[in-house]
Simulated assay, not measured.
Amino acid sequence: MMSHTELALFLAHSLALESEARERYLELSESLAAHHNGDAAAFFQRMAREAEQHLQEVAELAADQALPQLHPWEYAWPGPEAPESASYEALHYRMSLSEAMHLALGKERDAAAYYRHVASESPDTETRRVAAGFAAEEERHAAALEAMIAELDAPREYHRLDEDDPHLPA
């Protein structure tokens, strides 16, 4: 019974992790699109689609499990949010594509670290195996992002400068 309980708890966390990543990337994409930052918006849209694919993969693995229904405060994340959820504070409406990719790269690394931690600490063999597979997948995504970043041109120093004077009340 331990095996099923441990694996079900891990899969519940994994579903939340990927679901929150998808939702956050969609929010970031919509926000940047509203500010006419098409490159970064399209990139975050792509990341949302990748998170959706991961979510479906985890859901398939969890299909025959009775997953616990966890409250938000019951998730055992290493920080206040799911490891793959990009921070709102890191968003800037004029962020470059490179900055968007670096933000996502950090989140892929955070997710891989979370899964590696579970793979090394779980008392259950099956949970360790599945978590190690998830960690390897996140590491492949990080490597792919690193390659994409390396192909980008160096960002302009002035990309965040506002060309309009601020509109302050008189």
Rank of each mutant, 00 (worst) to 15 (best):
S3I: 11
H13V: 07
E18W: 08
A21Q: 11
R24A: 14
E30L: 12
E30D: 13
A34Q: 12
H35V: 08
D39A: 15
A40F: 09
Q45I: 00
M47A: 12
A48K: 02
R49D: 15
A51V: 03
E52G: 12
Q53I: 12
E60S: 13
A63T: 10
P68I: 11
P68S: 08
W77T: 00
G79K: 11
E81G: 00
E81T: 14
A82K: 09
A82V: 01
E84C: 12
S85I: 10
S87P: 06
S87G: 03
H92R: 04
Y93F: 00
S96A: 08
S96G: 02
L97Y: 06
A100S: 02
L105V: 03
D110M: 09
Y115S: 01
H117N: 12
H117V: 01
H117P: 01
S120D: 14
S122R: 03
P123R: 06
P123N: 06
D124P: 00
E126I: 05
T127W: 02
R128T: 04
R129T: 13
V130K: 08
A131F: 09
A131N: 06
G133L: 04
G133I: 02
F134M: 14
F134G: 01
F134C: 13
A135G: 09
E137Q: 09
H141T: 01
A142R: 01
A143W: 02
A144G: 00
L145W: 06
I149R: 03
P155T: 05
R160Y: 10
L161V: 15
D162E: 15
D165I: 10
P169N: 03
